[in-house]
Design a binder for these strands. Structure first.
Length: 377
RNA sequence: AGAGAGGUGUCCGAGUGGUUUAAGGAGCAUGCUUGGAAAGCAUGUGUGCGGGCAACCGUACCGGGGGUUCGAAUCCCUUCCUCUCUACCA
C-alpha cells in the first residue's frame, strides 16, 4: 500500500518536472501509468479500511486485563475484604432507616423531586442541603491538602471524551444524551478531568499529575432498578468529589495505595465504619486493572453500602486518550488512576442512620465544622 | 441567532496547484566560545502507522470529514471551533 503510494508520489513529481521542461507527451504517458497505480492503491485501501474498522470495533469492546493480584470470580460475593475499620454503632431497636429519617427531619424530599423531574432526583432542603454543601467542601479541602489541584469541569461532554475514558462504547445507554447537541451528561467527574489530558504528551518532570473536582453525576441506571434501591441508595443524580492521577507506569500502584489511604482518612474523619474490598475480576469495571471498593456500614439498614471505588487503569484509558510522556526520546503510554473521594448519597445515608439519637442526628465533628451545626432535629 | 474574518509545527508567523522535503523568527536541546554567564556561531528539535538490530527508509497528518487533480496547506463540498460587529441574555 505504502509502496504503491510512494510510486505515485514519485511519478507525480516526475510529471511536474516534465511539464516544466515542456515534454508534454512524456508527461501524458506517465499520467496514464499513474492513474493505473492509483486504481491499485484504491483497491488496496478499499480492502484495508473495513479491516481496520473491524479491528477497531473489536478492540474497543475488549475489556482491560486484570492485574495479577485480582482474585478470580464472577459475582460481588467473590470480592475479598482486605480491611475492616470501626465499630458498628449500637442503635436502639426502633432505629430508622435513612428514608424515614429524612422525612422525620424534612431534609430530603423525593416527592418534590418526582414532581419537578422524576424518580431518583431528590430535593435537598434546609439542613439537608447544607449538609451536602458541607460534605463537598470537606472532601475538596481534604483533596487540596493531599496535593490535588481543584478542577471545575463542564458536566456535559462530547463523544470523543466518552471514548477517551472508555464509557463509550461500553456504557452507551447508561449516560443521559442530548441528541440536539450530541453531548452526554457526565456519569462521573473522572470523564472530563481525565480527558483534559486527551492527546497530550506530558513532560516526565510534571508527573504525577493530581487533579480533583466536584461535580454532580448523572446515571440512567437503566435496568438496575429493583430491590435495594430505596432512598439514597441509588439515584439518577448525585454529588461526588473525584480524585484523578496520571502516573508513570512504574509508580502507579504506589499511587493507588496513596489514593486508598486518602479515602480511608476521609471515612475515619467521618467516623464511619468501613471495609475495603479487592474486587474480583467479574465485578470490576470494563477499563480497570485493579479496583478497591469502599463500603460503609449502614447500621439501620444492616448492610454495606458502596461509597467509593479506587482503580488503576494502567495504560487502558491512556491508550485511547493518547496520553503519553517521553522517556529517552521515545513516547510511552502513562497510567491513569481515579477514585471517588467521595460520593455523597450513601455517606449521607450512613451518617444519618449511624448517628441517630432520641435528640436528633449528631454529626461528627469533622463535618459539623463545615455545616455550621452539629444536630439535625 | 444574523453578517464578516479566521483556524498552519512547542509558540509566533509566511505560504492561493508542482525544489513546501512547510519559508522566516522565537523557544528548547547539544556543541563551540567564556574564569563563569549573556551574546554570538554551529547542529538538532512533531505525531501515528509500516519496515529495519540500528543509523535510517517509506507513508499519512496544515481544525475534523469528504471530493476535484498526474500532483492539494493552497481549489470545491460539508462540519466543528475561535475572533469582530449586530441581536439576545443569567
Amino acid at each position: 500500500m505504502d509502496a504503491v503510494l510512494s510510486e505515485t508520489n514519485n511519478l507525480a513529481k516526475e510529471i511536474g518536472n516534465l511539464m516544466k521542461s515542456g515534454k508534454k507527451d512524456e508527461a501524458e504517458k506517465l499520467k496514464i501509468t499513474n492513474a493505473e497505480l492509483k486504481e491499485k492503491a484504491k483497491i488496496l485501501s478499499d480492502k484495508l479500511t473495513p479491516l481496520e474498522e473491524e479491528q477497531n470495533n473489536v478492540l474497543l469492546r475488549l475489556p482491560n486485563l486484570p492485574h495479577a493480584s485480582v482474585p478470580e470470580g464472577k459475582t460481588p460475593e467473590e470480592n475479598i475484604a482486605v480491611l475492616e475499620w470501626g465499630k458498628t454503632p449500637a442503635l436502639p431497636v426502633d432505629a430508622l432507616p435513612h428514608w424515614d429519617l429524612i422525612k422525620k427531619y424534612d431534609i430530603i424530599d423525593f416527592e418534590l423531586g418526582n414532581k419537578i423531574t422524576g424518580a431518583g432526583f431528590p430535593v435537598y432542603k434546609g439542613k439537608g442541603a447544607r449538609l451536602q454543601r458541607a460534605l463537598i467542601n470537606f472532601f475538596l479541602d481534604e483533596a487540596t491538602s493531599a496535593g490535588y489541584r481543584e478542577i471545575q469541569p463542564p458536566i456535559l461532554i462530547n463523544q470523543d471524551s466518552g471514548y477517551g475514558t472508555c464509557q463509550l462504547p461500553d456504557k452507551d445507554g447508561q449516560m443521559y444524551f442530548m441528541n440536539e447537541d450530541k453531548l452526554y451528561l457526565i456519569p462521573t467527574a473522572e470523564v472530563p478531568i481525565t480527558n483534559l489530558y486527551r492527546d497530550v504528551i506530558l513532560k516526565a518532570e510534571d508527573l504525577p499529575v493530581k487533579n480533583a473536582g466536584y461535580t454532580p453525576c448523572f446515571r440512567r441506571e437503566a435496568g438496575s432498578w429493583g430491590a435495594d434501591v430505596r432512598g439514597l441508595n441509588r439515584l439518577h443524580q448525585f454529588d461526588k468529589v473525584e480524585i484523578v492521577q496520571i502516573s508513570k507506569p512504574e509508580n502507579s500502584y504506589e499511587l493507588l495505595e496513596d489514593m486508598k489511604k486518602h479515602v480511608q482518612g476521609l471515612l475515619e474523619k467521618l467516623e464511619l465504619p468501613y471495609r475495603i474490598l479487592r474486587l474480583c475480576a467479574g465485578d470490576m469495571s470494563f477499563a480497570s486493572a485493579l479496583t478497591f471498593d469502599f463500603e460503609v456500614y449502614s447500621a439501620a439498614q444492616k448492610r454495606w453500602l458502596e461509597v467509593s471505588s479506587v482503580s488503576n487503569f494502567e495504560t487502558f484509558q491512556a491508550n485511547r486518550l493518547k496520553l503519553r510522556y517521553k522517556v529517552d526520546g521515545k513516547t510511552q503510554l502513562l497510567h491513569t488512576l481515579n477514585g471517588s473521594a467521595m460520593a455523597l448519597p450513601r455517606i449521607v445515608a450512613a451518617l444519618l442512620e449511624n448517628n441517630q439519637t432520641p435528640e436528633g442526628i449528631k454529626l461528627p465533628q469533622a463535618i459539623s465544622k463545615y455545616a455550621g451545626f452539629d444536630l439535625i432535629n
